[in-house]
Nucleic acid binder design. Structure first.
Lengths: 292, 292
DNA sequence: CGCAATTTTGAGAACCGTCAAAGACCGTGG
DNA sequence: CCACGGTCTTTGACGGTTCTCAAAATTGCG
């Protein structure tokens, strides 16, 4: 007989979280590719967190479609509502019918699915500029949950508003489609990582991807980034046990590749790490608006 | 040191494929849920493959958005071009800039990514009615490849035509967005399976999902379905070795749950299998057009 | 200062991969 | 008709990666 296992979930002790990230933005160009850094200095960047808060959506969508004035004003109407959520309490819940999605202005969140035996798989982490629960909004019921890892600030996007905006300004719909496609590409990349890479490669890839994404919004560099994730969270994301994550991180550290310590990820030897992980970010490449 | 392994890929012996599926369609309602079957009879269904060929796109999108006459006629213009591909030769190639996507009219295909060491991860299989390479079309470069598993018939959708249609008829853009979202939901479900389920649960889930999807387009039932997949292909999809797939399939068969034999998947005890796999298809639910 | 969450380490076992080889099936060509 | 090669399936033996259980060390916080 095939045993129906009774595994205790490895990743449950639910992070009330250790540190609240400070999401100060440098004026880094969102379109900037990860290749051309000034690979440099300020990890704990100073600056104002204002810009991202007001037009995270503009930025995100503008990366895919060159938006006209009217389209921008429609967008402005779309995500006026600002809200705050505290770490640990779900924003979106699996099985619920959602009326709104959000755009993350500051803080970290994660989207995950729970299995019946209590295990969970984190599908992705969301960082400033990312959608929260977009798919839940589009589909009838949410197939996943979203939990803030730190306290987060978001702007709310109502279902009817969004669908209405699509009818008014078709290019907006296209923009959202493109943004969603890139998100899907990222999920696909995670799938490959979990399906075909060993623990060390997986974790290396995971950290490199996070770094690249954070760099795009000015919250990281080739040197490293601030990271509020516990090893339990990482484990749930890469499909390993927390214990094994710990062991592998030690290995990577001892090999001089990357150090995860005190809420910081430091790339000790970025190039060697990228090579080791076979890190390939073409799936994130976004040189400019696809739609002029 | 962390060893950089030199694994030979488990799934390469490239299937020139054993059997060409006959994609005869029953007049099953595409919106029909998997719950209410006449759980029945004709696995090797007879009938004409005509309907799906002509308006696979209409059907697919119509499931999400109630389309008007003009929108339907725009769609008609969109995928006039019919093409055929032989099994085994890639339709879309990773890294290429694609100008067209396709809608599968008959046959099976798979989308996959190759790692540098030659391993591959199959992201999903496509069955009649599914998009091929939609994401490749939307993004600048394709992040994956698409290979026909059997000989396939497709209708072609040109990039510019599609984007043009979006501008003309915004609801079409919304429809494609919704369709793409459901595809993403499916990838997410695969991710969970690979990340958090053991080999037997994974395979069971995999077969059940295929069955549900095929049933929606009239190519399967609760009793089973015709299936051109080799164990190598299944292995590459669920992130296992082909050898282990074989062992687990034997186990499932001996437990009286499901039998995979001679191009056929037979659900010997559907309910027990679904229970064993914790199969949950809310992520596929689609009761009717979301947009009236 | 003490509790809770997180990180770290060890030991043993389970799951799954690798290697190897034999058997089954199918089409081809002699 | 049979031999042959190719692909796919099946099985066994062995080893490694990763999981589980358990407990200690560390950190954060009230």
């Amino acid at each position: 007989m095939l045993p129906v296992e009774d595994r205790a979930h490895p990743g449950r002790p639910n992070s009330t979280c250790c540190m609240v990230s400070n999401n100060h933005l440098r004026s880094a160009d969102l379109h900037q590719l990860f290749g051309n850094f000034h690979d440099t200095t300020s990890l704990s960047s100073v600056g104002k967190a204002v810009e991202m808060r007001n037009n995270a959506l503009e930025r995100k969508l503008g990366a895919f479609v060159a938006l006209s004035e009217t389209e921008l004003s429609v967008l402005d109407e779309l995500n006026k509502r600002r809200r705050t959520f505290v770490a640990g309490r779900d924003i979106v819940e699996q099985g619920q019918t959602e009326q709104s999605a959000y755009v993350l202005a500051s803080g970290w969140a994660c989207s995950y699915k729970l299995l019946q035996d209590g295990q969970r798989q984190i599908v992705d982490f969301q960082i400033p500029g990312d959608f929260l629960g977009l798919r839940s909004l589009l589909m009838h019921v949410s197939d996943h949950s979203v939990e803030p890892i730190t306290d987060v600030e978001v702007t709310e996007v109502l279902r009817d508003d969004l669908l209405g905006a699509f009818t008014q300004t078709p290019r907006l719909a296209t923009a959202v489609l493109l943004a969603a496609s890139r998100d899907e590409a990222m999920v696909v990349e995670h799938l490959v990582g979990i399906g075909r890479r060993n623990a060390a490669e997986r974790l290396a890839n995971f950290l490199l991807e996070l770094g690249a994404r954070l760099t795009l919004v000015g919250l990281g560099s080739k040197a490293g980034f601030e990271c509020p994730l516990t090893q339990y969270l990482m484990a749930d994301a890469v499909g390993l046990s927390a214990v094994h994550v710990n062991r592998v991180l030690r290995q990577l550290r001892e090999d001089g590749l990357v150090t995860v310590h005190e809420g910081f990820v430091s790339f000790d030897d970025y190039d060697r790490l990228a090579k080791f992980a076979e890190f390939d970010l073409t799936y994130m490449d976004q040189i400019g608006p696809l739609l002029k």
